[in-house]
Structure formats: structure tokens, C-alpha cells
Write a protein that binds this DNA or RNA. Structure first.
Length: 827
RNA sequence: GCCGACGUGGCGGAAUGGCAGACGCGAUAGACUUAGGAUCUAUUACCUGAUAGGGUGUGGAGGUUCGAGUCCUCUCGUCGGCACCA
């Protein structure tokens, strides 16, 4: 007899967490007899305080991992820290503590907080990206990319955050006001020497690969937009002097409508095409364009400006002479920095031509055959046909572009071309707390890579942090000065560090065997992780994390994996087979939790009060995981009550059983409910629908609660139901289910048990209720055996007195009968 | 401007085209209790009605269907992404 007792999570949770750790219950072992499952959640930054958002990201993914494990998978579920980053450095400047000290203190604190979640993480595989034996490999990857021609250094205008005092990648500049993704400050433009990765080499593959992975459509759409592939043609115009000017166009079918050409103000041919008469005005315009920042230039509602260069270009399709203008609506950074302007069929060119009185020549007829003057640009690609277009006149516009491209290629006037919106990944950061870029600048030899054998380039532990806005590495003599590996002469190290997205691009590989080959000399042909373990575990089967990384981390890590494949380190194309984006848990007021709003819910307080199981369960109960939702301080009580009732079901039942035997009907009813619950919970957890899984668990428990003082607990089905309930609860509520499992006399952990098998036959209702509708309105309900045929249902319905009453003597015009569902009589 | 997601009780939410509102919170009434912000029982979309019953109802307007929260068209609103990208 299980003694009656009370559910006190504060007693059982630490007890089981310690027991699990002592037993090594969650240690990872390769095991070829079971299918592997690599489950990973985006690693946290060690800010020093775990917030509710972390709980919302991690505890459901833990439940999903536990579920997989109980379903026979050998699950690898690592945790670690994405530990480089600016907050550590800012703290150093403020408090004079080295970022390393600050970071590792935070990590220690956060590990303690994370452990309270009761998750099944493989702590023996924890990777920390600021460990020297981790960033040794980050540097190694850089050198491999450099050797493969994927890393290059370029002097160009770049986005710079004046608050973070560093350059940013385009992906890290957000919103209409072009602000810094991490601090919100609007960025400024600076021209600097910066390191970039040729992610654009993989643009097509990054786009096409989206079709092969099971990722949310939202992320795929965002990446598709971000990559921004557009297909068209490059057409070579010529200046009157004979210099070629290549333009990119998506509408080669409108070439005959080009009435002028526009160059970006920065275009290299501007000076040579400009006539002396126009030179002063052109120079003034160029200066004005440089002065305007990107935001002002990019404002779409801005009035078009531009100036005639005095020069002319020859349109290769008809040898027409067209004026060359410069205008800031043409960007040097996209396409070729030059366009053919077809005002009749492009909105922007139309506005420009209207303003400056340039000819608008129609080369596509309207859907009605109209060829008259246009009041607005007509851009249809499907309706109308080409007019005034030489030998192409009369070609339907649908498909015309392809025909024109073929002709351009035949005649050598142009060729098919594809352009991308995405740019190369600028990853140099002018900050100290990141992985050093292992490059040396030698006055004699130029830029020289650090030899692989000399890795890692270590960050100095004695750097001085001053509020100058500049990296301490620039002033650290011991770090800075180095002998050139090539000529042996005095040289300097690169003082930029890598974007932390470089570190997080490969943590899924680091986790396999963290800090691989610690302290050892590594070479160009070394392997950054244990190859045998890698073959077993990779790639990641299920990745989870926030959508905010859609065009940053989630794009970079895909690029990284494709580059590793081409270098020969992995044999797959995509790092994460499946992705799930959880939503955001909001404050009580429905707004994003923030200190300034004062709506922050501290998870540690909640765990102190309710226990981890309640917090876990409540977060999963709020709503669909990908939707997020507001924290309701009252609603969480419902989960605590549920757990208390589950406790009561186990500990109270059959203390004072009434005399007699349980009825067969009751036994059957409980069996039915049990199997319905198993089927529902299995489906739901498998699809991350934790909210409805918990609702189903509550329903089963409510039934057990209702019958616990009856004779039913004497029946074997009772024990089966209670044990199954605990098994079904185990992924979401690991502590209480473990405690109750043992209270019921089981020896082995609930978490190593087999997931219960639901039986559709046993879940079948004895009688089903058939709704009878007259003209779609419910008028009667029939109890019939499941599977009763449509014909039998129809007969029974039409014989029913109440049905006949509502039919009001009219004949049935049509009867729809659906077995186990309904009968609809149309009169 | 373009693309995408989402609009259901007082609240969070549930519903393979087939009984709208599961489950939970809150509320109301009752039981137990010295007490209750504990626990248990019952009720709880709205209108009407004493009950039975009847009617209405998933942002709005149409449509498809025997039948629509679900599918289609238009529209309003909220949120997100992209945007002088040629």
C-alpha cells in the first residue's frame, strides 16, 4: 500500500536530478543497434541570467528528446554555450573584469540554473565556444576557407554600428531605419578593409537546398527573399567612344523600349562618358549622392533625381543612340551598377522619364491590343505582345524574354544571367572578445596566414579594456607583434576577430567531441571532431530555436556545412534535417518581456514556488509551441493542480476500497480512455503539440480521479492506466513521473521505459452517437454500434419519431449518411 | 508597393470539410472547514425561456458544398519579412 502523502516538488526534484546524474542516465553512447537521433536547441549566450525565454526554448525540446528516447531512439541532446560576444567586453570596460572571467562566471551560474530544468542534456559533451580548444578550430576553419578561396579581404563601404564600435554583416542590419540587430542603433557607412566569406558562391545551392530540408515555410521564405535570386540577361551596350557598358535586366524582352541608360553615380565609366559641358553638374551630383546615406538614398518615396552626362550609348538591338544619365536610384552594389531604362514598362524608369521629359516608348501592347501612350508603366509578363521590337514584333510577351535571350546569345549581344540580392558575409569585427583571425600583415610579404601548426592564436588574458571604442588587441604589444611566417621579419597580427556567428556555425560538430585534440598541435589535414562519432551522429536530426536567426545563424550554418562538404569534412549537404521555431513567451501584459517594461517573469522564482515540472508543463500548455503567448500567473496553478491530482491518484487510490468488484463496463470504459489517451499523446508530442497532449493527460487523470474511491482500482486495468499515465507524463514532467513510478514499486527509471503502445481497437467506443440533421440543423441523436452502415443509419434516422416531426410530412429529397458521424436529411 | 502568418467565449486556447468552444484559467453556487487565496461537487458562448426547448454565433461581405472556423474570392485589422534590386 502506497502511503498517502503530499506532492512537494522542492523535495523530489533536486533528489532525482542528483540521482540521474549519479547514474549517468543521460550519458551519451554510440549504439549501432538503435536508430540515432541528434536533437539540438540553439545554444545560449552566457548573459549570466537564465530567463523565461530560455525555459520556453529548452524544456519543450527536452520533452521531445525524451519522447524520442522512450520510443527506441539513441538520443544525443547536447548543451553548451555560444560564449563570445560583446556584452562580456562591455562589462569589462565598465567593471574592469576580463571578459573571460565574466563569461566563465556567468557560465557557471547558468549551468546551475539550467540544471534546475531537469533536462536530459549530455553534460559530458558541453562545448563552450570561447574555450581555447574550441576557437582553435574556429581559426582552423578560417584557414581552410582561406585556402579554399572562400575568405578574402576587401576595402569597401560597410555598415558600422557606432554603439558596438564594429562593422556588421548586412544580415545584422535590420529595419527601415537600418539599425544594428543587437543594440538598435542606426548604422553608419564607413569604408574599411574587411574580411568576407564568399557565401554568394553558394547562393544557388542555399536556395535550391531549401527544398530538401524539413524546415518551417516561414524560414524558407525569409531565406529565399534574402538570397533574392532574379534571372534575366546581361546585355552589352557601348558608349559612343566604344567602351562596353554591361547592364543587367530581368526584362530583355523590353530592350527595344530602352530610351535612356542610367549609371550609378559611383560607376567607373561615369567620368569617361561625361562631356565637358556636363562635368561640373555631374561632379556636383556625385558628391551629393555620396553625402546622402543609404537610408535616404533607399527611401522609395523619394523624388527621383539624376543628371544627364552628355554622353550617349548605343543599344545593341537596334543601334539607337540613347542618352546616358546618372541617378542614385541605381545602386553600384547590385547587378552591374548600370541599367537600360525602359520607362514604358518599368515604374521607376517611368517616373524618371516623366520628370526629365524623356521619351516613353511602348514595346508591349495592352491585353486589349492597345498600343497608345501610357499613363503608367505597364509591366505585365503574361498579357500582350511585343510591338516596335524589330523581328520580335508580334511575339506574345509570355515567353518572349527567353526567346530574346536565346537571340542575344546567338548574336553575341548578351547572355542569360542571374543576380542575387545576398552579399558576401562580412565577418570581421573590431572587437577583442571573439575568435582571432589567424592572419599576419607583413610589410614585405603582405597578408600571410598563421601556419596551422601555430594555432590557436590565443586571446591575451591581460588585455586592457578602455572606453576608447577600439579593440584592446590593437594596443596589446605582445599580441600585436609577431614574426612573419614567410620571411621572418617584423610583422603584425590582424587585430579583428570573427563574427560570433562563425563560432555558432559549427557548434553542432563541436558537440560531438568538444575540444577535440586538446592542447595538441593541429595540421591542415586534421579533423576537428572525432570522425567515428561524427559518422554515427551527424547530421542533426531535429534543430529547434527562434526565428530571429532566419537569415543569420540559420543561413550561415548552412553555408558553413556546404563549405565543409567541399573541403571534404562531411558527406551531407545540410546541417539540420528538421527545424522547428518556437514562439516567444510574453509578459503578463502580452508584451515582450523587458526590464524597462517591468513585466519580466523570473523562472527561478517560479521554480522555487511551483517546481520545475509545473513550470515546464505550464510553458508547454500556454498554446502551440511555435505561437508563444503571454504568461498568465493564474493559469500556471492549473498545472500544479493537475500534478497534485496525479499524485493523489497514485497515493490515495484503494485506501478504503468499497466492497464488491468493478463492473465490466467501467473496466472497458477506462481501457478505452487509456488507449485514446496513448494514441493522442503519442501523436501530439511527436508533432510538438504539447498543449493538447497535456489536455489529454488531464482528461485521463480526471477520470482516474473520479473513480479512485470506487471498486475500479481493484481491476488490473487500473494499474495499467496509472503506469501508462506516468509513462506518458514522463517527457514533460520528468521528476514527478519518476517519483510516482518508484512509489508504485518500479525499480528502473521511468525514463528508460518503453513508450506505451496504443491500440485503436481498444480505443474504440462501444456505441457512437450519430447526429441527425434536418437541412443541416441537429434535430436528433442516435446511439449505434460503431461501423453501422450508411444504409442502416439512413433507415434508422428516417424511422425516428423526432426526425419525422421535424421533416413535417415532407419527403426526403436527399439523405447523406456518414458512418460513425451523422445523417443529414434534406427536405 | 510585394510576400507570408494570424483574427474563435471574460482570458490562454481546442476542433482529418461532419455535434464549435476539448483542456485550463477566471466567474457563480454549494459542500467541507475555526478559517480559506486549500480541497471537492455543479454550472458557465450569446439571446430567449421557469425547465424542456427555440434562435444566433468563429473579424466583415460574398461563393462552393447536403454540410464551412476549416476550401475559394473580395475586404478590414494585427504581426512579421522584403523593398528605387533593374
Amino acid at each position: 500500500m502506497i502511503p498517502m502523502s503530499k506532492y512537494i516538488p522542492q523535495q523530489i526534484e533536486p533528489k532525482w536530478q542528483q540521482a540521474w546524474a549519479a547514474q549517468g542516465l543521460y550519458d551519451t553512447h554510440e549504439d549501432t543497434t538503435r536508430p540515432k537521433w541528434y536533437a539540438l536547441t540553439m545554444l545560449p549566450y552566457p548573459s549570466g541570467d537564465l530567463h523565461t525565454g530560455h525555459w520556453y526554448a529548452y524544456t519543450p525540446s527536452d520533452a521531445a528528446a525524451r519522447f524520442k528516447r522512450m520510443n527506441g531512439y539513441n538520443v544525443f541532446f547536447p548543451i553548451g554555450f555560444d560564449a563570445f560576444g560583446l556584452p562580456a567586453e562591455n562589462a569589462a570596460i565598465k567593471n574592469g573584469v576580463h571578459p573571460k572571467v565574466w563569461t566563465y562566471a556567468n557560465i557557471e551560474r547558468m549551468i546551475a540554473q539550467l540544471k534546475r530544468m531537469g533536462a536530459m542534456w549530455a553534460w559530458d559533451h558541453m562545448a563552450i565556444s570561447c574555450d581555447a580548444d574550441y576557437y582553435k578550430w574556429t581559426e582552423w576553419f578560417f584557414l581552410k576557407f582561406y585556402d579554399a578561396g572562400l575568405a578574402y579581404r576587401e576595402y569597401a563601404p560597410v555598415d558600422f554600428c557606432p554603439t558596438c564600435n564594429t562593422t556588421l554583416a548586412r544580415e545584422q542590419v535590420w529595419g527601415d531605419d537600418r539599425h544594428c540587430e543587437r543594440c538598435g542603433t542606426p548604422v553608419i557607412r564607413k569604408s574599411l578593409q574587411q574580411w568576407k566569406f564568399r557565401i554568394t558562391n553558394y547562393a544557388d545551392e542555399l536556395l535550391d537546398g531549401l527544398e530538401t530540408i524539413d524546415w518551417p515555410e516561414r524560414v524558407k521564405t525569409m531565406q529565399t527573399n534574402w538570397i533574392g535570386r532574379s534571372r534575366g540577361a546581361e546585355v552589352t551596350f557601348a558608349t559612343e567612344q566604344g567602351d562596353p557598358i554591361v547592364v543587367f535586366t530581368t526584362r530583355p524582352d523590353t530592350l527595344w523600349g530602352a530610351t535612356f541608360m542610367v549609371l550609378a553615380p559611383e560607376h567607373p565609366l561615369v567620368d569617361s562618358v561625361t562631356t565637358d559641358a556636363q562635368r561640373a553638374a555631374v561632379d556636383a551630383y556625385k558628391e551629393e549622392a555620396t553625402r546622402l546615406d543609404e537610408i535616404q538614398r533607399a527611401a522609395t518615396d523619394k523624388e527621383k533625381t539624376g543628371i544627364f552626362t552628355g554622353g550617349y550609348a548605343i543599344n545593341p538591338v537596334n543601334d539607337e543612340r540613347i542618352p546616358i544619365w546618372i541617378a542614385d536610384y541605381v545602386m553600384m552594389g547590385y547587378g552591374t551598377g548600370a541599367i537600360m531604362a525602359v520607362p514604358a514598362h518599368d515604374e521607376r524608369d517611368f517616373a524618371f522619364a516623366r520628370k526629365f521629359g524623356i521619351e516613353i516608348r511602348r514595346v508591349i501592347s495592352g491585353p486589349d491590343g492597345a498600343t497608345g501612350p501610357l499613363e503608367a508603366a505597364y509591366g505585365s509578363k503574361s498579357e500582350g505582345e511585343l510591338v516596335n521590337s524589330g523581328s520580335f514584333t508580334g511575339t506574345p510577351v509570355a515567353g518572349a524574354a527567353g526567346k530574346v535571350i536565346a537571340w542575344l546569345e546567338e548574336t553575341g549581344k548578351g547572355k542569360a544571367a542571374t543576380n542575387y540580392r545576398m552579399r558576401d558575409w562580412l565577418f570581421s569585427r573590431q572587437r577583442m572578445w571573439g575568435s582571432p583571425i589567424p592572419m599576419i600583415h607583413c610589410p614585405t610579404c603582405g597578408v600571410v596566414p598563421v601556419p596551422y601548426e601555430d594555432l590557436p592564436v590565443l586571446l591575451p588574458d591581460d588585455a586592457q579594456f578602455l572606453p576608447t571604442g577600439e579593440s584592446p588587441l590593437k594596443y596589446h604589444e605582445a599580441f600585436l607583434h609577431v614574426q612573419c611566417p614567410k620571411c621572418g621579419g617584423d610583422a603584425e597580427r590582424d587585430t579583428d576577430t570573427m563574427d560570433t556567428f562563425m563560432c555558432s556555425s559549427w557548434y553542432q560538430y563541436a558537440d560531438i567531441s568538444p575540444n577535440y585534440l586538446p592542447g595538441q598541435t593541429i595540421h591542415a589535414d586534421s579533423m576537428p571532431w572525432d570522425p567515428e562519432k561524427g559518422r554515427y551522429w551527424l547530421p542533426v536530426d531535429q534543430y529547434t530555436g527562434g526565428i530571429e536567426h532566419a537569415t543569420m545563424h540559420l543561413l550561415y550554418t548552412r553555408f558553413f556545412t556546404k563549405a565543409l562538404r567541399d573541403i571534404g569534412l562531411v558527406n551531407f549537404d545540410e546541417p539540420m534535417v528538421r527545424l522547428f521555431n518556437q514562439g516567444m513567451v510574453l509578459g503578463t501584459d502580452g508584451e515582450k518581456m523587458s526590464k524597462s517594461r517591468g513585466n519580466v517573469v523570473n523562472p527561478d522564482d517560479m521554480v522555487d514556488r511551483y517546481g520545475a515540472d509545473t513550470v515546464r508543463g505550464y510553458l508547454m500548455f500556454i498554446g502551440p509551441w511555435d505561437q508563444g503567448g503571454p504568461w498568465d500567473p493564474k493559469s500556471i496553478e492549473g498545472i500544479t493542480r493537475f500534478l497534485q491530482r496525479a499524485w493523489a491518484v497514485v497515493t490515495d487510490a484503494a485506501h478504503n476500497p468499497p466492497a464488491g468488484e468493478p463492473s465490466a463496463d467501467d473496466v472497458r470504459m477506462l481501457e478505452r480512455k487509456l488507449h485514446q489517451t496513448i494514441i493522442k499523446v503519442t501523436d501530439d508530442i511527436g508533432a510538438f503539440r504539447f498543449n493538447t497532449a497535456i489536455a489529454a493527460l488531464m482528461e485521463l487523470n480526471n477520470m482516474l480521479m473520479k473513480y479512485k474511491e470506487t471498486t475500479l482500482p481493484k481491476a488490473p486495468i487500473w494499474d495499467e492506466a496509472v503506469d501508462s499515465l506516468l509513462l506518458l507524463m514522463a517527457p514533460i514532467f520528468p521528476h514527478i513521473s519518476e517519483e510516482l513510478w518508484h512509489l508504485r514499486g518500479h525499480e528502473a527509471s521511468v525514463h528508460v521505459q518503453q513508450w506505451p503502445q496504443g491500440s485503436a481497437t481498444k480505443a474504440q467506443e462501444a456505441m457512437v452517437e450519430i447526429v441527425v440533421q434536418i437541412n443541416g440543423k441537429i434535430r436528433e441523436r442516435l446511439q449505434v454500434a460503431p461501423g453501422t452502415s450508411a444504409a442502416a443509419l439512413e433507415a434508422e434516422a428516417l424511422a425516428n419519431a423526432n426526425v419525422l416531426k421535424w421533416m413535417d410530412g415532407k419527403a426526403a429529397r436527399k439523405v447523406i449518411a456518414v458512418p460513425d458521424k451523422l445523417v443529414n436529411v434534406v427536405v
